[in-house]
């Protein structure tokens, strides 16, 4: 990688100050996505501003019926959290299946959603559950936060500090792994919200996380899981590569949606 500076500010305010002073500075939390990018010399930040250990970002607690997860919580911590396991077991399971064990020890929820890799798992849960993303500046609805692959509504100098997940009735995340990278070829987070409405969020299509509205309406009408195969799912949401065509990815999305819903039932 190219040489770079490094700082580990003691407070969020100090981190923000560093970012403001240096346009080429880059936040790092767990760094599990960033570090391979740097090693491949695909980016050349002037310095890394490390926020992984900021206490402000490292808590999990209940807020009303929902939960709040600090941006700096690792996937392993989320997966093991009694609070998450009690309130949103599907989210704990999702976190416990990200990457591999070593990556789960470092990677964080804040880093994952801020990066918004189209194959990352977390965005599906955030979108499906109608979570809200807390930054140092504002609170963003999930729908407003994600903006296509590797893109979010985050402004320069804006940092994700926490994610608020509302309670839900029941949910399930299923991932179909790319046989090489083990990232999601397709992942589906299916949920029945506290309001009884259904949410289906899909990742891995290639263009970033999206909701399968037709399926949600189908389910909200009380129609059965078996009928899902005929519910339209726009092929434009999917791109193909050597691991699977767009058509195949769409097909798998339908299959694992059905399986997730069956597990929920």
């Amino acid at each position: 990688m190219y040489d770079l500076g490094y700082s580990r500010p003691a407070t969020l305010a100090k981190a923000l100050e560093l970012l403001q002073q240096d346009d080429l500075a880059q936040l790092v939390s767990g760094g599990q996505t960033l570090m391979p990018v740097l090693r491949a010399r695909l980016a050349a930040p002037s310095q890394l501003v490390d926020i992984a250990r900021l206490d402000d970002l490292r808590q999990i607690c209940t807020i009303g019926a929902g939960i709040e997860i600090g941006a700096g919580m690792t996937h392993a911590e989320v997966a093991a959290s009694p609070v998450v396991r009690a309130h949103l077991p599907a989210l704990a399971a999702l976190a416990g299946g990200i990457g591999d064990a070593q990556i789960r020890h470092r990677g964080t929820i804040g880093g994952s959603i801020a990066n918004n890799d189209p194959a990352a798992c977390y965005p599906s849960a955030v979108l499906a559950l109608g979570a809200r993303v807390q930054t140092n500046l504002r609170m963003l609805d999930a729908e407003a936060f994600f903006a296509g692959m590797f893109a979010t509504a985050l402004e320069p100098g804006e940092i994700v500090t926490a994610v608020h997940f509302p309670a839900c009735a029941v949910a399930c995340y299923l991932k179909f792994r790319n046989p090489a990278s083990r990232f999601a070829l397709v992942g589906v987070f299916a949920a029945r919200l506290a309001s009884d409405e259904h949410r289906i969020a899909i990742i891995g299509g290639g263009n970033g996380v999206f909701r399968w509205h037709e399926a949600e309406r189908h389910l909200d009408r009380g129609a059965g899981v078996d009928g899902l195969d005929t519910v339209p799912l726009d092929l434009a949401n999917f791109t193909g590569d050597i691991h699977g065509s767009a058509d195949y990815r769409r097909h798998v999305a339908k299959v694992i949606t059905r399986r997730a819903l069956t597990q929920m039932a």
Partner: peptide, 12 residues
């Protein structure tokens, strides 16, 4: 196109 473990399917 299969120039890393991201794209070359190794047995695990």
């Amino acid at each position: 196109m299969t120039a890393s473990y991201m794209d070359y399917g190794m047995p695990r």
